[in-house]
Write a protein that binds this DNA or RNA. Structure first.
Length: 312
DNA sequence: TCATCATGCCGAT
DNA sequence: TCGGCCTGATGAT
């Protein structure tokens, strides 16, 4: 279940194992049969993420746009090259390794296990597989997506253009800073609550409910503050913090948002989800800083968590 | 074994 | 504002 970091990891994983390969594209479930037929037999030439959206570019000017929504997922079979996540010894060896049903995203390294010698490839699809991308060695199964459609490059570019800046999309520091100013302008020109603006993908891309709550706490900012009342330097700080958190999430695959933990605390937090966050999903529990009970309410149909004392 | 909820978003109403 | 998506983790039974 993805925020921006997960989708970037998926883009990198598919980039490693499927880009440059001519793919069999099918829809075992049947709901994407027509789209799969258009892509079948083509080479995958690029895999990139913008915010929470994945764009897979095939030869012949066709782009597969995927959005996982709340519970979409990719399961990979066969050869799955470990990403350098710096967490799991199994995954840090760097050598290609055969795994069974690797869930790409948060904590996938924990699910990785060597395949049995009798495993057949490709395996039979499990569940409602909307799309299967198949190379000689790797199968990628997409299940439960909100969006899955074939676009021409112009339509794909238009979809990406509807999104606000994604800090992981910039290599150039100057362009990154300019994108930050765009976010500052967007937030400070609106009267909408900043907690809602951070979830608006047209303002800034890739932030979900976990990162929203944690970014606001880390900024000690009251979530209901209208965007136009938030000082520009505070918005700039949130953008810079998002840049750091996203890079960390992409690297580790885990949303660990507490910068105060020592090595032992981090190790504990990687196992215990409740220790990873300042406020997210901690309603009624004492704030890690001041001890006040963490508050929860609905904001724009999602649960918003915050500390009423630390965040003013 | 079952019921509920979840890191998201869209389209119908 | 609500239901759909139709999965998977979690906690109650």
């Amino acid at each position: 279940m993805p925020e921006g970091h997960t989708v970037h990891r998926i883009a990198r994983q598919l980039g490693r194992d499927l880009v440059g390969h001519r793919l069999r594209v099918t829809s075992p479930q049947g709901r994407f049969a027509a789209g799969a037929e258009r892509l079948d037999g083509r080479m995958l030439v690029a895999s990139r993420a913008v915010g929470k959206q994945l764009f897979l570019e095939f030869e012949g000017e066709l782009v597969l746009r995927v959005h996982l929504g709340l519970y979409g997922a990719w399961d990979l079979h066969g050869r799955v090259t470990p990403l350098d996540d710096g967490l799991a010894p199994l995954a840090s060896l760097g050598a290609p390794r055969v795994r069974r049903a690797v869930r790409v995203g948060e904590g996938e390294s924990e699910l990785a296990e060597p395949a049995g010698v009798d495993e057949t490839f490709p395996p039979a699809p499990v569940g409602q597989v909307r799309v299967r991308l198949l190379s000689e060695e790797t199968a990628a199964d997409l299940r439960g997506p909100t969006a899955c459609e074939v676009l021409d490059p112009g339509a794909a570019a238009a979809a990406a253009a509807r999104l606000g800046p994604d800090p992981a999309a910039f290599d150039d520091p100057v362009a990154l800073a300019a994108a930050g100013e765009q976010v500052v302008d967007a937030v400070t020109s609106r009267s909408t609550a900043v907690g809602a603006l951070l979830m608006d993908q047209s303002v800034v891309a890739g932030i979900g409910n976990v990162y929203r709550a944690e970014l606001l706490f880390r900024a000690r900012l009251e979530p209901h503050t209208p965007g136009r009342r938030v000082p520009r330097e505070v918005v700039r700080g949130i953008w810079e913090d998002w840049t750091v958190l996203l890079a960390d999430g992409i690297r580790t695959g885990v949303m660990l948002t507490r910068e105060d933990l020592d090595d032992a605390g981090r190790a504990c937090a990687l196992v215990d989800r409740d220790a990873r966050h300042w406020v997210y999903r901690r309603a009624g529990l004492p704030c890690h800083v001041c001890g006040t009970a963490v508050q929860v309410e609905d904001m724009a149909t999602r649960k918003l968590y915050w500390c009423p004392v630390c965040q003013v």
